[in-house]
């Protein structure tokens, strides 16, 4: 309020000056006045900008950047939650321990296995679903809603629901398999099947979401490209390869990277369905970090693993960006 008052006073002043002086003089003075006003206006714009931006910046600084730095710092210490006042710097000890930690290694490979299977399968399923219903078919909205429906449930809900479906003794899936004469499977109780069971469920839960994004992408491909291809006598398969796929490239890339990052964050499914078992075959990286930090309270070591985890996620993202960029160049 104050500012606007003073500026209107200035304005009045200017008018008075202009009135009392000759035209030539006014013309002489005007630019200088403008400059001054522009300067204060600039300052005011900056102040307003920071006023609008500050709350978010402060919050991000305290609750995102600071913890990020803290994780980095803790990773070089023996910070133990129960003795927060007795923290000493131990150099790279935590990091060298990672190399000899069999549990970390297992969790790492479990996570990689999960990602390597889930990412291409989910991408393919999502694209397949989108292509199937991107036509003039009857009940299109019904099918789309059906494929999308698992997305509506949270990972926790889905994990609990599928634990009951996977129940080896009286679960829905074994009962249905029994109808076809297939013997009951152990699913989550077997070291060989547990991770695969989680993978099937994860794809089922997530694919509908990416299908929606693909559908939007398909609708953005200009129809005249297809018409041109028709005139050239292109087959369906050729049209798919030369019009549809290139048209979806950016969206597929976006989905590819988001699914990969999400896959590396695997936590809820094993935590609820298997508690990391049997024999640690479903323990994921984030789960291992969580246990080390909250069950064993070893913040120092857990932070070191969190730093490694962040580096892995960043590396994967960067490698994917580079690979896909090269492809685009060819």
């Amino acid at each position: 309020m104050k500012k606007s008052n003073s500026s209107s006073a200035e304005q009045l002043n200017t008018n008075a000056n202009e009135d009392s002086r000759g035209h030539l003089q006014v013309a002489d003075k005007k630019p200088r006045y403008k400059k001054k006003r522009m300067k204060s206006q600039k300052f005011r714009e900056a102040a307003t900008g920071y006023f609008f931006l500050a709350p978010a910046l402060i919050l991000l600084g305290i609750f995102l950047l600071y913890p990020m730095g803290a994780a980095f710092y803790y990773s070089f210490t023996d910070f133990y939650i129960l003795t927060p006042n007795d923290v000493s710097f131990i150099g790279f000890e935590n990091f060298s321990y990672i190399l000899s930690d069999a549990e970390f290694r297992q969790a790492f490979w479990n996570t990689v296995y999960f990602a390597v299977i889930v990412v291409p399968v989910q991408l393919a399923v999502a694209l397949g679903l989108a292509l199937l219903i991107n036509k003039k078919i009857r009940f299109r909205v019904f099918f789309r809603t059906a494929f999308f429906s698992p997305v509506v449930m949270s990972l926790v809900v889905v994990s609990i629901l599928w634990t009951f479906m996977y129940n080896p003794n009286e679960g829905l899936i074994n009962e249905l398999l029994g109808l076809f004469g297939i013997p009951a499977q152990p699913f989550l109780n077997s070291p060989d099947q547990a991770m695969n069971s989680i993978i099937v469920m994860s794809v089922w839960q997530g694919a509908g979401f990416q299908m929606m994004i693909f559908l939007a992408g398909l609708q953005n491909i200009p129809t005249h490209l297809y018409e041109a291809a028709d005139i050239d006598g292109a087959s369906k398969w050729q049209k798919f390869l030369n019009v549809t796929l290139p048209g979806l490239r950016n969206i597929a890339l976006f989905i590819f990277i988001t699914i990969t990052i999400a896959a590396f964050k695997l936590l809820v499914q094993p935590m609820i369905m298997t508690q990391g078992g049997p024999l640690g075959t479903t323990k994921s990286l984030v789960y291992h970090i969580y246990e080390t930090g909250f069950n064993y309270r070893d913040v120092g070591y857990a932070s070191a693993m969190a730093v490694v985890f962040t580096v892995i996620v960043l590396a994967v993202t960067i490698i994917q960006r580079m690979l896909t960029r090269e492809e685009g160049g060819v």
Binding site: Y66, P67, M68, I261, A306
Partner: peptide, 12 residues
């Protein structure tokens, strides 16, 4: 990844 900062965030 938020997962990588939840421990120090909890301490904070």
């Amino acid at each position: 990844p938020p997962e990588s900062i939840f421990l120090p965030l909890y301490v904070l």
